[in-house]
Nucleic acid binder design. Structure first.
Length: 160
DNA sequence: GCCAACGTTGGC
DNA sequence: GCCAACGTTGGC
């Protein structure tokens, strides 16, 4: 079981939006970056746990935990000419872009802000800190434990 | 809203 | 295959 950090702009799709889903799942579509795509297609599996991160706001922060409920499959929004994520190069034989499905798990009692993360030297290797714009990032076991502790959650979160 | 970082595109 | 131009991301 692996850990990840997924970025989203809350104005577009927030952790509360995920919570309010009737089935409490959501397809994480529209990722159009090859490195992130490779993670979604090849590495993310059911049961992996996700730090849900809100970006592009006054105080960017990890606000909750989600869980992978479906591993990578072709992103059909790439083949919708009316959609904003359309990619004319994508086809049934070569979908190019992939997505996973996530389920809401638990919010952080205290959101862990980007500032908090930057202030912790043990978190200095996170892509988030290195200012990468990568929207899907791996998180190490240690980073996971530290961030859960900082946010007021017990470490023993397990896949459902 | 600014702008630095950085990924992608396309001419050569 | 290089690299300049361009577009996007995302912190501030």
């Amino acid at each position: 079981m692996a850990y990840w950090l997924f970025k989203t702009e809350p104005g577009c799709f927030s952790f509360d939006d995920l919570h309010n889903r009737p089935q409490m799942t959501e397809p994480w579509d529209g990722v159009r970056n090859f490195q992130a795509r490779n993670f979604l297609r090849d590495t993310v599996v059911v049961g992996d746990l996700v730090l849900f991160y809100h970006s592009n706001i006054a105080e960017p922060a990890v606000v909750g935990i989600a869980e992978i409920v479906r591993a990578g499959y072709p992103d059909s929004t790439a083949r919708d000419p009316q959609g904003e994520h359309f990619d004319p190069k994508a086809s049934a034989a070569n979908p190019i872009w992939y997505l996973v499905d996530v389920r809401y798990r638990i919010p952080f009692p205290t959101p862990v802000t980007l500032g908090d993360i930057k202030n912790n030297p043990l978190l200095g290797d996170m892509p988030l800190v290195k200012r990468s714009r990568l929207s899907i990032q791996p998180v190490s076991d240690l980073e996971w434990q530290l961030i859960l502790t900082m946010g007021g959650l017990p470490e023993g979160i397990r896949p459902l």
